[in-house]
Each structure stands twice: as structure tokens, then as C-alpha cells.
């Protein structure tokens, strides 16, 4: 098993490294923006046995994400961390930059709080292995936004194709068809597996996977 922990905030990366050391476990820590640091499956020679059919899969077997799901102003964007040489900038500038990066972890939610999650779903469609599974935490309005956007996308493509959005009209399942790199869309099934009601909102864990499994 190879475990990799990713965070956009350098201070969080240090904390992860420390926690894993204290627990005597081997985890590699990457300071990066979601999976943008990973080589795309199509550019590697690994797992491309089905690439001729447009099916290239990634290497990630288990992906975990507790995304920033709070609603934010429309157009608010999370910043991407920059690579700077620490010996060339003043401490105050570095502290300001660290602060902006830390804040960025909570920004970019958009009016439905799903902008960061949607970016992760695009990457999951590309980087999950054929039988890979993505466990993600969502608040109820995040899931509603994903379903609404899926319906809108189907509406633009084919108005008669509504039958497979929900399985048996279940509120706990949706087939997402708009995520991936664009050249070969790979549908993702999204199923609610755990829920907890907290004051004012419902938090749920969803299992996201390739529907042919």
C-alpha cells in the first residue's frame, strides 16, 4: 500500500507529516492543488490496455476527500500555490503568502459550495483506477447541485435520457456523466452510504465509482 496525503496549505502538510510520524505510519505528503501535480494517465505507459477504446484509467485505488463545501460568492476562486525560493523573499511576504494559501482552502465554493468538489470529480474520472473508489463528504445542498447540473447537462444533450439519472428514483444515487477530461467522458456513479443530521444541515458520505463495477 502506498499512501499519499495532499494539501494546498504547506502548514497542513507539515502537520500531516508530523501526525504520521507520531503514529509510526509511512505516508508521503504532497503540497499541491488536488491532483494537478499527477501525470495524466493518457501521458503514461501504465494502464493503457484499453486506451484504443477510449478507456484509459488512472492509478488511484482509493481516493478520500472532505472538500470545502461551504457556499461562497459566485466567481470566488481558490488560488493555486506558487513555488518560491524561501531565501529570496522577506518573512513578512512569506507569511502573507502562507495566510492566503491557508485561506484558499476554504474559498472557491461558489454559490452551491461545489466548485472545488467538481474539480476533484473531473480529476477522479481521469485518475481513478478501473475499480477505484472515491469517498467524498458532501452537505445536502452540494449533492442537490450536482444532481441539478446533471439534469441540465442531460437536458441539453437528450431530453429522453433522464431514466438513468436516478436508479429506481432513489435519492441516494445519481449517475454523473459530465466529468473527465472531455475527450472521453467516463461516467461516475455516486451513491450515498452514510448520513448524519447536524443542526441545520445533513452531512453524507458518498461512494463514487465507475458504474460498470
Amino acid at each position: 500500500v502506498h499512501c499519499i496525503a495532499v494539501d494546498i496549505n504547506p502548514a497542513a502538510c507539515h502537520a500531516t507529516s508530523h501526525t504520521c510520524l507520531l503514529n509510526n505510519v509511512q505516508v508521503d505528503v504532497v503540497c499541491g492543488d488536488l491532483l494537478s501535480w499527477m501525470r495524466h494517465p493518457k501521458s503514461t505507459c501504465v494502464n493503457i490496455k484499453n486506451v484504443s477504446q477510449g478507456n484509459s484509467y488512472g492509478l488511484i485505488d482509493l481516493l478520500l476527500f472532505n472538500p470545502p463545501y461551504v457556499r461562497g460568492p459566485n466567481g470566488e476562486c481558490a488560488i493555486v500555490p506558487m513555488v518560491l525560493k524561501s531565501d529570496t523573499i522577506e518573512n513578512s511576504t512569506e507569511n502573507q503568502l502562507q495566510s492566503k494559501i491557508a485561506d484558499a482552502a476554504w474559498l472557491g465554493g461558489g454559490p452551491d459550495g461545489v466548485e472545488v468538489l467538481k474539480k476533484a470529480l473531473h480529476q477522479a474520472a481521469d485518475f481513478l483506477s478501473e475499480r477505484g473508489v472515491f469517498y467524498v463528504l458532501m452537505i445536502d445542498y452540494n449533492y442537490a447541485a450536482l444532481v441539478r447540473e446533471e439534469i441540465n447537462a442531460r437536458c441539453e444533450q437528450d431530453v429522453n435520457n433522464f431514466g438513468v439519472i436516478n436508479e429506481n428514483n432513489s435519492k441516494d444515487y445519481v449517475l454523473l456523466t459530465t466529468f473527465g477530461d472531455g475527450t472521453a467522458k467516463k461516467p461516475l456513479a455516486c451513491r450515498r452510504i452514510l448520513s448524519r443530521q447536524v443542526p441545520g444541515e445533513k452531512l453524507s458520505v458518498y461512494r463514487v465509482y465507475r458504474p460498470h463495477i
Binding site: C3, A15, N23, L59, A105, S129
Partner: peptide, 21 residues
Amino acid sequence: LLVVELGSGAGLLSAAVAKSL
């Protein structure tokens, strides 16, 4: 098996997963 946690924060989940696997 490749396991990736996005937004690991303090690393509590990463450490727990690594320990359980």
C-alpha cells in the same frame, strides 16, 4: 494499492487509513 487523501489537513485521516491498511 494506491491510496490518496485530498485536503489532508492535520493528517488524522491519512494516518488512520495508513494504520488500518
